[in-house]
Amino acid sequence: MDHRFLGIPELTDVPRVAVVIDVMRAFTVAAWAFSRGVEKIVLAPTIEEALALKEGNPGWLALKDGAPAAGFDAVNSPALLRSRDFAGRTLVQKTTAGTVGALAVAEAPLVLCASFAVAGPTARYLRSRAAGLPVTFVVTGEEGRADEDLACAQYIGERVADDGVAAAPYLHRARNSRAAAELAAELRAGSHPDDVALCLEVDTFPFAMAARTEDDLTVLRPVVAPEPSSGGR
């Protein structure tokens, strides 16, 4: 399977298969939100549209990057979501990088959104649903240079071929990334001291996350991935 690793500004065509990576923190947050009962996540292009979607759909919740703000129900922090109860709810998510990357490839026939938390299921989903197809990994952070996102993308790419690939070297890169340092130093608003550790947990959840167009919206949902093969991770 051929892989490309591109930043959002480098996307010049619609890929057949796209895997959008945001480790710290959008798609770690999305995975945690699904684990807490969220039914679907609507990816919003702007803060204003996120609020409008919430206002126009009673019962929907909204989440964004940064500090808590009027109209938003949550911030982009996995640690701050892990004790919430979102059973059956729809969450509108707007972030600086992850949601932007997903929307940039929304027309692709297959779009997965991923982080280390769902790395193995994402690799197995690719193996079962996109065997032999070229994969474009969208490295969302720092215009494609964020090492935590690139490390995760490369790790998933390797696990497509070999589910037993060791995570340690990739996690080391992510742990020493600029984003991890900024989170650890509490330089990013709307964060929690446990965020870095949660973002560096591998295969926390058993599902992959697929984005599709529903009623002119880009909607992210958990999808069932094949079980690990005998002897895999």
Rank of each mutant, 00 (worst) to 15 (best):
G88M: 09
A52W: 02
D13C: 10
G56C: 05
A184R: 10
R221D: 08
T136I: 05
V75P: 00
D203L: 06
V75L: 06
T213F: 13
T95S: 15
G56T: 07
A225L: 05
V92I: 14
A26L: 09
A114K: 00
R16P: 07
R212C: 11
V111T: 05
T213P: 01
T95F: 05
T96N: 13
S177K: 01
D194N: 06
E39W: 11
S230L: 14
R16T: 13
A31I: 08
S35T: 09
T218E: 09
L61W: 10
L150E: 12
E10L: 08
H172A: 14
R188C: 01
V223Q: 07
H192M: 10
V19E: 03
R16I: 10
A174P: 02
A119W: 00
D195L: 04
G164S: 15
A225Y: 04
F137M: 07
A30S: 15
P228Q: 08
S229W: 14
P121A: 06
D162H: 12
I156D: 03
G37T: 10
R175Y: 05
A44F: 03
A102R: 00
E142P: 00
C152V: 04
R159E: 02
V135D: 00
G144N: 07
G71V: 06
L126I: 08
G37E: 12
Q93P: 02
F34L: 09
